[in-house]
Design a protein around this nucleic acid. Structure first.
Lengths: 183, 183
DNA sequence: AGATGATTATATCGCCGCGATACATCCGAA
DNA sequence: TTCGGATGTATCGCGGCGATATAATCATCT
């Protein structure tokens, strides 16, 4: 997940960890955080795996006389680009889970149209399932359920209903564009 | 988190892991899952910590001639009950984060009224912050932002706005009840 | 000029929880 | 009768979090 997001962001420009985290926060702030406690170890791992590489960052070094490396600026390697494309193209069942879906959607512009569609439809199915579960829970219990739990379920139901409507619009739009491309 | 939920559920009746998981799914299904991969290790840990204890489950054993223990039924210990009350009473800043908030709210009936209020207000503040962040992101970028990201932000903004309204209602209701109790 | 606090920046540690996987029983339906 | 689906417990590796440490830079107030 973090890996996908980092690859996506570095696709635009080389960046250091702190900057990545800020951009991540703006890009995904609606539904995902990512702490430094995951970011820095992930950068290390990706570097070891050869997906990203540390830039010499010459200008930065020239400015600093005390010889201490203040920033680690990373750039995508060729393998990193490959990996990114691969991750975007292979949409699996976990792709439509809460946390992953948003990250994938944030990079839809770089995702093939058919994969976009698969993800949107998969997500819709997933949210519809949850919606039905909530409907059942609300219907089943009737009066005997705890009132706060019911309030929680009611809110959840409304949210899922709204998300399904939202997804329907997105899917319709995608289909319209597909038609435009074809005909 | 899981610990809190388990303590809350076992407060009603002794249960085995599988049953706990099902109840968990119904109770928190709107926003939280909890897999067996977390459940069973957590039960072990809680047992070691003395928060829960394994029941003899006599009826179950009598049924089974092959001598194999099929179910591990757990019950709350006195310490477990203490711990539960403690966890409910001590509402901290992480209590209003996405995942924790729902779990806490699911046990509001057992939570002191003043703590309920603190949690609801804390949550509201938290969601308002996110809402402002999303508004800023949407305003700032104007046209240059990626269209899918914008769609994501739009959806996020609507959700946060709705949740704030929902919380306002809940808070108002709590206040009304507080007045009823006082006057 | 000096203090002070916010921001920038990297890093690690222990813990929580997830997904995959394994294994075994029980039950109903084809 | 076999076979899939529920019931039931368990473990492993890893992704990610929150807390925490450290330190330089920059703006602001006095």
């Amino acid at each position: 997940m973090l890996e996908l997001a980092i690859l996506g962001l570095l696709h635009e420009a080389p960046m250091h960890g702190y900057e990545l985290r800020k951009r991540l926060h703006i890009l995904l702030g609606a539904f995902r955080a990512f702490s430094y406690g995951s970011l820095y170890p992930t950068l290390r791992r990706m570097q070891r795996a050869g997906l990203i590489a540390e830039e010499a960052d010459v200008a930065e070094l020239a400015d600093r006389t005390w010889g201490r490396r203040a920033r680690r600026v990373y750039r995508l390697t060729a393998e990193g680009k490959e990996r990114f494309a691969e991750l975007l193209a292979n949409a699996g069942p976990q792709t439509w889970e809460d946390d992953r879906f948003g990250v994938h959607m944030a990079f839809f512009s770089r995702t093939p149209a058919d994969v976009r569609m698969r993800i949107l439809e998969g997500r819709r199915r997933r949210v519809e399932e949850r919606r039905e579960g909530l409907r059942a829970a609300l219907a089943r219990a009737g009066e005997q359920i705890d009132r706060y739990t019911r309030e929680l379920h009611r809110m959840g139901l409304e949210s899922t209903e709204r998300e399904v409507r939202w997804l329907n619009e997105l899917i319709a739009r995608e289909q319209a564009e597909q038609r435009d491309r074809d005909g």
